[in-house]
């Protein structure tokens, strides 16, 4: 019975979605005259000297969203810790080390993965990628190690420091613009030449901070969840 109701509901939703989106032509240039897309593309190239315009939108034009986004991640990690907090676990953890092959492989791959992550977020303003993507790659490196060794420890203190300092960097760069008499998050550094590593003013700095923050936060989330081990009553 419930399934039937749900299916009828979904049929209605489907009808309207198809109706609306069949009228939005795929791949068509819908905007004429002044519009946000052309404005962003133009300013990204000429005013900010950032070659990846997605990065300039994420970090500058809509940088306030990104600050909120970073906060969402931070708060998700906080809420996760609060929900799963317990003073001590009862019983004995049931855990195994992975096989030698996996462990050696993980060791071998760990450093290159971190390096790749760093590369991705350092070049976020030049090529596809950026802080979120790079941070995620770094977290996968730690995930690999956590899966290979059951007793792999990530220091909570270090994570907290990295997380907080990166977040503070982002917020203070924003506030610096305000203090210098500009607006919040406005660029105040020289913008360099487009397609140089040192270009785009504060944009790459913010994205690197985001990379560190995301890496630390995702690692923290994974670590908290993996520490929720299955316990055998002893």
């Amino acid at each position: 019975m419930k399934k039937v109701i749900v299916l009828i509901l979904l049929a209605v939703v489907a009808y309207y979605l198809v109706d609306v989106f069949s009228q939005i032509k795929f791949g068509e240039n819908r905007f004429q005259g002044e519009n946000v897309r052309d404005f962003y593309l133009d300013k990204s190239k000429n005013d900010l000297h950032v070659s990846n315009s997605v990065t300039s939108i994420v970090v500058n034009f809509r940088g306030f969203d990104t600050l909120g986004e970073v906060t969402v991640l931070f708060l998700a990690a906080t809420a996760l810790g609060s929900v799963l907090y317990r003073r001590k676990a009862h019983g004995e953890a049931v855990l195994f080390n992975a096989s030698t092959i996996v462990r050696s492989g993980a060791h071998l791959l760990f450093a290159p993965i971190l390096l790749l992550g760093a590369y991705v977020f350092i070049h976020g303003h030049l090529s596809p990628g950026g802080g979120f993507q790079g941070g995620t790659i770094i977290a996968t490196g730690f995930l690999l190690m956590l899966l290979a060794y059951h007793d792999y420890k990530v220091s909570h203190g270090v994570l907290t420091w990295v997380e907080s300092l990166a977040g503070l960097t982002f917020a203070s760069l924003g506030l610096t613009g305000l203090i210098l008499g500009k607006t919040f998050l406005e660029n105040f550094l020289p913008i360099g030449t487009i397609n140089d590593l040192f270009s785009g003013g504060i944009i790459p700095i913010i994205y690197i901070a985001v990379g560190f923050k995301v890496g630390a936060e995702l690692t923290g989330v994974l670590y908290t969840m993996l520490n929720e081990k299955e316990y055998k009553k002893s």
């Binding site: 946000v36 897309r37 593309l41 969203d65 991640l73 990690a77 969840m225």
Partner: peptide, 29 residues
């Protein structure tokens, strides 16, 4: 060039989706 704005919005939406999923999984645990 394709429109970069939806791509930036999707980046935000993905991150938020991840955050909500993480909290939800914690609740399930």
């Amino acid at each position: 060039m394709v429109d970069p704005v939806p791509q930036a919005l999707v980046l935000t939406a993905i991150v938020i989706g991840f955050a909500v999923t993480a909290v939800a999984l914690a609740l399930v645990i």
